[in-house]
Amino acid sequence: MKLAVPRRHRSIALAYLLLLVLVVVGRIVASGFLGVDHIDELIDEGALIGFVALGQGFVILAGGVDLSIPWVVTSAGILVTTFTGTNSSNMLWDVPLIIGLAAVVGLINGIGVVFLGVTPIIMTLGMSTVVEGALLLYTNGSAGGNVPHPAVFLATHKIGQVPVMGLAWLVLIVVVTFTLSCTPFGRRLYAVGLNRRVALFSGVDVKLVTCSVYVISSCAAAFAGIALAGYVGQSYLGMGDPYLFTSIAAVAIGGASILGGTGNYIGTVAGALTLSVLNALLPTLGFQPAVLDIVYGMVILVAVAAASLGGRARTD
């Protein structure tokens, strides 16, 4: 039997199939798995992964990788609690300020990669430590304070039975998908990821496009950090640590090529939800949380092997 989906969407269909299988397994092993409250929880945690993976996805699409995400998430989470505290009216200024600071971090990453020719992995690894040091110096190593009300509202409030964060994610999904498939920027981004040289000769401003994905990545990570602080109700050092492997794994499961040039956000959404379901499922199956790290690694390995072996088959 032939699959009725176009060839290029097959890997995305596969990601949703995987999600479906895991949900069915969850329903079988745990009776409350598909209760409304639990579904909301799965969507919320999927959304947090989805926010971070959005930025990582842009960077991967352009052929790079962003290792500075964990400390940008942590910094945003901690800054939103130390700047704003309980005084919600401050948030109107503080959120743009935090996202702006993150944009500066992303811009430095982008400048290092594009204009100074540092490889993405070294540049973002170095920046990660710089951000960590700067945050620790600013906060003197202490985290905490109160999470401002709007962040809590975004992360935990529900309209009827629908979580606000899920709605915010839905808006982002529409915006990102539109940007990638229907705008000149999206087409340029795919061109850069597929073949930098051809893109350059076709008149694409490769430097600008490459630089912008790092800015997008840092801003998305900062947004995720603010939402995460609201979701867990506090901020702490290392709160962003899990999001390095998760963000890459979500993109990989979603069928994007780890080497850049293919993939879209609809696939990454399936990846984020799959990881969220897996996160909930493993403890009920009697596995320790650490097994997740092993699963992430395996998923990334399989994805990169598939991408590069598949790519080779295509060009041969």
């Binding site: 990788v65 650490a290 097994v291 997740l292 790290d293 690694g297 395996m298 990334i300 990169v304």
Partner: peptide, 14 residues
């Protein structure tokens, strides 16, 4: 980088 990133994750889990 991507291979050793993946094995980094796996071995960290172990």
């Amino acid at each position: 980088f991507i291979v050793t990133l993946a094995t980094w994750s796996i071995v960290s889990g172990v």
